[in-house]
Write a protein that binds this DNA or RNA. Structure first.
Length: 568
RNA sequence: GCGAGCGUAGUGUAGUGGUUAUCACCGAGCGUUGCCAACGCUUGAACCCGGGUUCGAGUCCCGGCGCUCGCACCA
């Protein structure tokens, strides 16, 4: 979350402007409180008839931006996620309290709190151990004193659910991030990319966090749009990235101690302020993406997480923060997650999630040592045979038998020469398996969308009246063109509606037809939803098939033949 | 989650317990005007929800929901 006090500028928030902006967004069908019909629901928002397309255009721009790297694919995984997946990832431990309900009075209590006097650190227990301890201790309810408890459930920041019905139901959660889908899909990704790293997978989708207290409009939501890339790399062969396009762009970089550096990304990587080149490269790509959406360059900064702030998985993390009506807000996190996630899923699932690295020269390994002769040692040592085998294989090649080996439990056994066999062989290893590291750029689409609107919102005056518009980039503008007949008579309406229908047939072009009110009022309406171009059909159109094309940002008009319109 | 303040058309608002709830913008229709929120006429649209007090509640009380702020929380 943003640390907005550290750099000072939060107090410059203009609340009146914020309220006018929010009012306009509601009135124009861009952002609205969800389920307003039923009194509203905290932390949930509707994207209206205009905002819906704004969101999808941002999503699409994001996907295109990363897929264009060439070694990145789009995937989509379910939002409903089995319990085990999020337990392995660490989310159950980090996100949840384990709750149990009193069977008598219904009071909900935290299981770890109930068991505080019966375990040194109940907070560290997993759900199974907590349940056994609860059953064993059977503590009294702090409210009514009885001792009958419902089965423990994980609650709080993740929405929990049951996958399937009744007895066969299996506990699960709505995902709190999209990332786990990319990790659990690693084997398919690895195959798809012909077992060659680096590669990445992206997905955009919904995430859910049952925030205790959502605040600040679009900034903290219970259901939110996120877009994440997991980029898998070999930690031993660093990819060289091209930083040349940002060479002369000083970026606002705040280090983990709160010091501001105005430095180009390549300089910051060279100075080891940014600890990993790929993290730095993705910071640059993130910067480009934000500029393309119309975010103001001087309202972007990157802030490095302090060590104590870093998430449980990260080894370096930079947030892109955007300055808007709520101060500096974290909108993107670029984290070096190391091998944390794949290793965690390997351990929990028992499956291998590794990539192979071929050695430049095969390694020839001479093995000269001992192993057990299973046919003799097995019957002799019975249950200890496995441990004896490990011990024997660690003995030097010049060991003489009989010899004594010490077991874990303190017992000592004598190994006779007939129990062992000499092993002498040459092994050629051409490569090795390793757990890839991951660099993750994670984007909060709602927060970015908010800042796109905030930065695009322009207040001015026209004829003494306040005049508002959204100066949206055409990359994200929800409506591409508005067709306006100066009047719906003498055939102007006909020409305009024909042109509108023609525009509607063009894929990915959204056209609106508006004939109501004066021409100035219609331009003003179009400006408020950020339409870049207005086409007006007037009297001259009747004679020579030309129209006027008005540009939103400067109000300039040019006359152009309908057939020469740039978007047709 | 705790505390404080607030909740009236799509938006912004007025409203001493007492008619049909104010005004403006807004939306729709018609006319007029012939390129930047023009004008006229007609018209649409609200007291967050549920209880209570009262002859009578937008107004007072209680509860819920929502919004804002502070504390707490925030992978």
């Amino acid at each position: 979350m943003s640390n907005s006090t550290r750099c000072g500028d939060t107090d410059m928030v203009d609340d009146a402007r914020l309220e006018r902006l929010q009012g306009m967004l509601r009135q124009r069908g861009i952002l609205l409180p969800a389920f307003d019909l039923y009194g509203g629901a905290k932390g949930l928002y509707d994207f209206g008839p205009v905002g819906g397309r704004l969101r999808s255009k941002i999503n699409q721009a994001w996907l295109n931006h990363w897929i264009s790297l060439g070694n990145v694919v789009e995937i989509s995984s379910p939002t409903v996620t089995p319990y085990e997946v999020l337990e392995a990832s660490g989310h159950v431990g980090e996100f949840s309290d384990f709750m149990t309900q009193c069977g008598e009075c219904g009071e909900a209590s935290r299981a770890d709190t109930l068991l505080e006097n019966h375990h040194p650190n109940p907070d560290s227990l997993n759900i199974g151990d907590l349940q056994s301890l609860l059953d064993e201790v059977s503590p009294n309810c702090p409210a009514c004193g009885s001792a009958s408890w419902s089965p423990i459930e994980a609650q709080n920041l993740m929405f929990s659910t049951t996958i399937g019905a009744g007895e066969s139901g299996r506990p699960g959660f709505m995902r709190p991030e999209t990332a786990q889908g990319m990790f659990t899909m690693f084997p398919a990704l690895y195959r798809h990319f012909r077992e060659q790293l680096p590669f990445g997978a992206v997905q955009v989708g919904k995430g859910y966090r049952n925030e205790i207290s959502p605040r600040q409009g679009m900034i903290r939501l219970r259901e939110f749009n996120m877009a994440e890339m997991e980029y898998f790399i070999d930690p031993e062969s660093q990819e060289t990235h091209d930083f040349s396009s940002w060479e002369t762009t000083p970026m606002a970089l705040i280090d983990g101690d709160g010091n501001l550096h105005n430095q180009s990304l390549s300089d910051a990587v060279d100075a080891h302020l940014i600890r990993h080149q790929t993290v730095g490269f993705f910071m640059g790509k993130t910067y480009d993406f934000l500029l393309n959406l119309g975010i103001d360059a001087d309202k972007i900064r990157f802030r490095q997480h302090a060590p104590d702030e870093m998430a449980h998985y990260a080894s370096d993390c930079w947030d892109a923060e955007l300055l808007g009506s709520y101060g500096w807000i974290e909108c993107v996190g670029i984290a070096h997650r190391g091998c944390y996630d794949l290793e965690a899923h390997e351990n929990a699932s028992g499956r291998t999630l590794r990539a192979r690295r071929e050695f430049s020269e095969p390694k020839i390994i001479e093995i000269d040592g001992w192993t057990i002769d299973g046919g003799v040692a097995g019957p002799a040592f019975r249950g200890d045979a496995g441990q004896v085998k490990v011990l024997v294989e660690s003995l030097d090649s010049d060991t003489e038998f009989p010899t004594e080996v010490a077991l874990d439990d303190g017992r000592t056994l004598t190994v006779e020469s007939e129990h062992v066999k000499r092993v002498q062989k040459t092994v050629k290893e051409t490569g090795e398996w390793y757990i890839p590291h991951v660099v993750e750029p994670a984007f909060g689409i709602d927060r970015i969308l908010w800042h796109v609107l905030d930065h695009a919102y322009d207040e001015s005056e026209k004829g003494g009246e306040p005049y508002r518009m959204l100066k949206l980039s055409s990359l994200v503008a929800p409506v591409d063109v508005v067709i306006l007949p100066l009047f719906e008579k003498d055939g102007m309406g006909r020409i305009a509606s024909d042109l509108h229908k023609r525009c509607c047939l063009i894929p990915n072009l959204v056209s609106m037809y508006d004939a109501s009110g004066s021409i100035g009022k219609r331009y003003a309406r179009a400006d408020e939803i950020g339409v870049p171009i207005c086409i007006t059909v007037d009297h001259q159109s009747l004679e020579d098939n030309t129209v006027t094309m008005r540009t939103r940002d400067d109000g300039s008009q040019v006359r152009i033949s309908i057939d020469d319109l740039p978007f047709l």
